[in-house]
């Protein structure tokens, strides 16, 4: 079972088609880097993984659980149960031709409401069997942002403690005070690990960019996530602060954390990744080990891209 899987993701912003059918999966402990030019859709792909952007079509799965609504086009049994399919078969079409036509011409989503009970029952069955609440999934899949996004109204320690404490409240933990003490202890030990324990009671506005990003990373770690998503974590940093953030990420990768990283740091991607995805014009144009992608690129767009950034 994959840790994280995206199946045939499309994302449209109005008439702008940013992702045009992207599929990939991330295994436990794997470090996957996503590279590509600005505007290629790589950040959108990452944001679709935790549903900060809702995919227009396609499904996102995490540890065998479905985060998105069911996409009928990904399930033959649902397509075959539809009136649209039965109509095409009745008009003399072959099974696979009918399915292809329905997919290509997007004949189902528009007419969701007109489909019969069999189709609806199947949709519901798939949903019920597999779906997980987005908030629950996000607690196991934290994200680190380009702009850090530390909570301005909270101290560093409260920034780290907020989500674990609120989660304990959602879970109706009996002895909340004991739980809080435990969370505080973990938060302090995380701060010590990055050498910023003395900043516990400071507000984010008093910190440097590198400090902010390292705290944002341990804020994510405090949730004990199974996967971590990084959205260009060093792009907003001054050059002299990039190293400290990358070092911390490297440490996490070596400790076996599953990570998906959108990055412009090619040297870093080459060093820590198990697999590199090259996203371009809304597709994954090439993927492979760092040696393959950086050492022997096949796609002309990738070669062009690498010649500019390396």
């Amino acid at each position: 079972m994959s840790m994280l899987e995206v199946k045939n993701i499309y994302k449209n912003f109005g008439d702008l088609h940013v992702l045009k059918g992207v599929s990939t999966n991330v295994d436990k402990g794997e470090v996957v880097s996503i590279i590509g030019v600005s505007g290629s859709g790589k950040s959108t792909l990452l944001r679709c993984m935790n549903l900060l952007e809702e995919p227009t079509f396609g499904e996102v799965w995490m540890e065998g659980k479905l985060l998105t609504p069911v996409d009928p086009y990904l399930h033959f049994d649902i397509i075959r149960a539809s009136k649209t399919y039965k109509g095409l078969i009745a008009s003399g079409m072959e099974d696979m031709d009918a399915i292809k036509k329905i997919k290509d011409e997007d004949m189902l989503l528009e007419k969701h409401s007109q489909e019969g009970p069999e189709y609806k029952a199947l949709m519901q069955k798939h949903f019920k069997e597999n779906h997980i609440d987005t908030n629950l999934a996000r607690r196991k899949m934290s994200m680190v942002f380009q702009q850090f996004n530390l909570f301005n109204n909270l101290t560093v320690l409260d920034n780290i403690m907020l989500a674990p404490v609120e989660t304990a409240k959602y879970n109706k933990v009996k002895d909340l005070n004991a739980e809080k003490a435990k969370i505080r202890e973990q938060a302090m030990s995380l701060l010590e690990r990055i050498g910023l324990a003395d900043k516990a009671d400071v507000y984010p506005s008093k910190l440097s960019g590198g400090q902010k990003q390292r705290i944002a990373i341990v804020r994510s770690l405090a949730m004990n996530p199974d996967v971590m998503l990084f959205d260009e974590p060093t792009s907003a940093l001054d050059p002299e602060m990039i190293g400290e953030v990358l070092d911390l990420m490297k440490e996490l990768a070596e400790a076996g954390m599953t990570m998906v990283i959108v990055t412009h740091e090619m040297g870093f991607a080459r060093e820590v990744s198990d697999r590199v995805l090259f996203v371009d014009e809304g597709y994954i144009k090439e993927e492979g080990t760092p040696e393959q992608v950086f050492g022997n690129p096949q796609n002309p767009r990738l070669r062009d891209f690498l010649s500019k950034v390396l």
Partner: peptide, 27 residues
């Protein structure tokens, strides 16, 4: 209030209500 504040809170699995009460409204 910066949209990133809401995104960070939601990405940590906080509900819309908690995000509003603890992060957005105080700011």
């Amino acid at each position: 209030v910066d949209k990133g504040q809401t995104e960070a809170a939601r990405a940590l699995g906080l509900t819309a209500k908690t995000t509003m009460l603890k992060i957005v409204l105080p700011q």
